[in-house]
Design a protein around this nucleic acid. Structure first.
Lengths: 340, 340
DNA sequence: TTTTGTTGAATTAACGTTAACATAGTGGCA
DNA sequence: TGCCACTATGTTAACGTTAATTCAACAAAA
């Protein structure tokens, strides 16, 4: 029942050239006469030829496929980045294949296997905690890859990420400059580098402004997630002994805003909130939220570029790019009520 | 620099068997002695062998890869389904590759090309409006596929979807039974089969209950999206000449709820709201929302099963499965204020 | 003893493509 | 006229795997 796919051979037979000539014509080899090339191309088009990546890649060692390995598709931050990477790659004649590990850490190894097995040309990898082992595995197997979004210590590999420490610092300086003196810091679930750096940057700003460290109440990620899970966010935010909230990421900040507004607490009138990722900045169906993110250069575009350069030139020394960040002020911060 | 991948040949040389024997050992061929098989397998493990899908697929015609082609990763409904399909497929020793068309319809054809080009064994396809052409293209190319979530008329192809007409009907019957008499129906952006069926089912229920059709104010999807895009949802929902809202999908219902609550309108006290997809039912960070969705059988699991059956047996007559739906009552509907 | 069957493995030929090399035909130039 | 360079194409061999076929060794049956 299955239609037999047209091959180079079929085209060759159809227009009386050798298979190799057909292959060259379709790849746009310069050394063919214009007439031949266009005849072959036209014939191929008419016959509905679709090249066989398997065969081509097997022979040439190039598949023009890039895999992105991602933890969880429900994380909109990742989806954003994936979309951008897809566009970047497509523009460069590559295809992006998304491999998703569904929050199951052990799947990472399997997905790396899959990527190698499929002979993808490179891998874009969002490392999560404790995956150094898998990353080294890629390295050992000579698979070109770029790490995104997170710092992995003492691993000499291409990395693109935001300056999270500086981000945390900016948040702190922004809020202290407005006059805030008591803060609630909502941590993320995992002890990722982003989490750690953002908090430590924030604390640096606090110290610099002359405030004592204990003016920051830090809620561990576990508690935040639990509160979200049991619809008890309001309780978590109580007592309101702070005038500003720093949320580790936008997706936590959103429900927090809903919860506060549900308690008739005005933002930023009563409480300021600032967060990270600048998520949904272009999605007007989401509430505005002041957020910190990469200043200009896009992490996705840069990651793609670095990966392609690595593929071209495997002996390049690894680069560790830390992108500067800035505050995207969407109006959810203001001076505290007292000094307005 | 790039490490050379271990091949069957390397293993064969290492343990003194022929390449073919190694291949058979690794595939678990019964006709080898137990000793040989375990020796080869152990050697392969030690040498870090990763099979080459390209070569294997080229020869055997089976890649054990399934592609899912999806419009937009930001649509959480799709992400949910993709996650489930991934799990189902993995359990059956298949890999899922996600190809995303970024809301650009013309990309559909390109992605189908990619899928064929990669010799995937089958395609899971979420059709959107006006893609019949691409679907027929898959059919013509003999690529096994299953259509998900939508009805595509007069196309004889495997399809799994929910009974949207019945869903709309259930919504209507539920609300009229509670005593509601004036409704706002928020349409989806595209004129998809789901959209059309849900509205017509809803109207059927209205007629049946003896109400006149004009008690339903239908807002076209374009207007809904525009309001979302310009943060003017509140205006869209005004005047509140209705006691119940039916939203085409949960992701529209959420911002609507926020907007109403922002206007101090209580749900379901002042206005009831019901929607479709039962999205985030297990994500407690989202507000509760009464929603309609497939009753028991899961669309993802069933779709995967149907696809694998189709692959096994290409001559099966196409099946069109319409799953029954039910209301998942999460408390956002109540009798209208007047008759409480 | 010869024949037959069984087991375990090797050999060979593909799959569709591309890279390297080979070759035939042309035109230019001394 | 002979030689070279160049252009346009063909031939061959590989990529890593698997399927079909063949083969060798041995045991059981006649």
């Amino acid at each position: 029942m299955r239609a037999v796919r047209t091959t180079l051979k079929d085209i060759a037979n159809a227009c009386g050239y050798s298979v190799n000539t057909v292959s060259r014509a379709l790849r746009g080899d310069e050394r063919l006469s214009e007439a031949t090339r266009s005849l072959i191309r036209e014939t191929a088009g008419r016959m509905g030829y679709i090249p066989n990546t398997m065969a081509s890649s097997l022979r040439s060692g190039r598949s023009h496929m890039i895999a992105v390995i991602v933890n969880d598709l429900h994380n909109q931050h990742y989806c954003d980045l994936i979309n951008r990477m897809d566009r970047e790659l497509r523009a460069r004649n590559y295809n992006l294949m998304i491999l998703c590990m569904q929050l199951e850490d052990e799947l990472a190894e399997k997905l790396i296997h899959t990527a190698i097995s499929l002979s993808v040309d490179g891998v874009l990898y969002f490392p999560s905690v404790g995956q150094r082992h898998y990353i080294e595995y890629m390295k050992d197997n000579g698979m070109p890859f770029v790490l995104l979004d997170r710092r992995v210590n003492e691993l000499n590999a291409d990395t693109v990420r935001c300056d999270d420490e500086q981000g945390g610092y900016l948040a702190g300086r922004h809020l202290t400059a407005l006059g805030h003196k008591r803060f609630l810091f909502l941590s993320g679930m995992e002890q990722s580098s982003s989490q750690i750096d953002r908090l430590s940057g924030f604390r640096r700003a606090i110290r610099e402004s002359g405030l004592r460290e204990d003016c920051v109440r830090v809620i561990p990620g576990v508690q935040v997630e639990e509160a979200l899970a049991h619809n008890s966010l309001a309780a978590l935010l109580d007592p309101i002994d702070y005038t500003a909230i720093v949320s580790f990421r936008d997706e936590v900040a959103y429900p927090v805003m809903y919860a506060l507004r549900g308690q008739r607490i005005s933002i930023p009138g009563d409480v300021s909130i600032i967060s990270f990722d600048n998520l949904h900045a272009e999605d007007p169906t989401r509430p505005l939220l002041t957020s910190i993110y990469s200043a200009d250069e896009n992490i996705a575009a840069l990651g793609v570029r670095m990966l392609l350069e690595r593929i071209e030139n495997p002996s390049l020394p690894p680069r560790n790019v830390v992108l500067p960040v800035r505050i995207y002020d969407h109006g959810t911060t203001a001076p505290p009520a007292g000094i307005r």
